[in-house]
Computed example of a mutant assay.
Amino acid sequence: MFTPILAISASLNDSQRIHALKVGANDFINKPFIEAELAARIKNMLLTQQLYQQIAMQKEALEKMAMTDQLTGLYNRHFLMPYVEKALSSAQRYNYPLSIVMIDLDKFKLINDDLGHDAGDKLLCGIAHILENNCRSEDAAIRLGGDEFLVVLPHCSLEQAKFKTETLRQAITELPPASHKTSASFGLSSTEEGNFIFEQLFSMADSAAYQAKMNGGNDICH
């Protein structure tokens, strides 16, 4: 946060003024001063402070936009790696389980082909809503792209992840459109076997989701 500093003194010579600026003052005024001049300098400094605040807010908004999927509002791949590396490091350091859930929609292309992309987008947003409603503050729901999602669950064992995933599975089957059965294939993996390398955990969850799809979809594998 930018806090402007105005130096006021009755004995500021050239070297002292330069020193004041070097150590953090943004402006200075000598005593005795005209009140109107003091007010003008303070006003200018407050305007500068507001400008800094606006820039900081815009920077924060741009960073959030860069890490957010524009359709669903979930996090995207740009958010995933920094977050999951920190989460896995913490899980390993403090010895608690972390599970991930890979979600791959079943026959999503058929919905797009039969009903159009608007219907497909509504389904994706519906799934995002389910994930957000069933995630804790420490969890992260991510849209990887297309019809694939990933949920990272710190402090969550594989058995607990199975229970949570079953809730997701049931909720997705209740989503519209009524003319098409909506479902997803789920793959789970966990750090409980001592694996804290994300690429390997992701590969295991992805392979499990593929197996669930080969089983006919609407299934959970690990």
Rank of each mutant, 00 (worst) to 15 (best):
H180F: 07
Y210I: 06
V152S: 02
S157Y: 01
D147K: 03
D139S: 10
N195Y: 10
D219T: 09
R136K: 02
E148P: 00
N215V: 09
F198A: 05
E132H: 12
M204D: 14
N134H: 11
A141I: 01
E199C: 10
S203H: 14
G217H: 10
L188G: 04
T167F: 13
E193W: 13
Y210P: 00
P176D: 10
S190H: 02
R169S: 09
E193I: 11
E174N: 12
N134C: 09
N112S: 12
F163Y: 10
D118V: 12
T173Y: 10
S190W: 00
P154G: 06
K122F: 10
E174T: 12
I142T: 00
E199Y: 09
H180L: 09
D114E: 15
V152T: 05
N112H: 08
L131V: 05
V152H: 00
N134Y: 08
I127V: 14
E148V: 00
L168F: 10
D139A: 00
T165I: 03
Q211P: 06
S203D: 15
G116F: 15
A161L: 05
A140D: 03
Y210N: 02
C135D: 07
L175E: 08
H117Q: 04
P154A: 13
A128G: 04
A171D: 06
L144G: 05
K181V: 15
A171Q: 13
Q160L: 01
D118C: 09
A208R: 01
G194C: 05
H180M: 12
N133E: 13
G217C: 06
A119H: 05
T182S: 13
G216N: 04
R169L: 09
L168D: 08
E132R: 13
L150A: 05
N215M: 06
D113R: 09
D114V: 14
V151G: 05
T182P: 11
I172K: 00
L175Y: 04
S203N: 10
R136C: 11
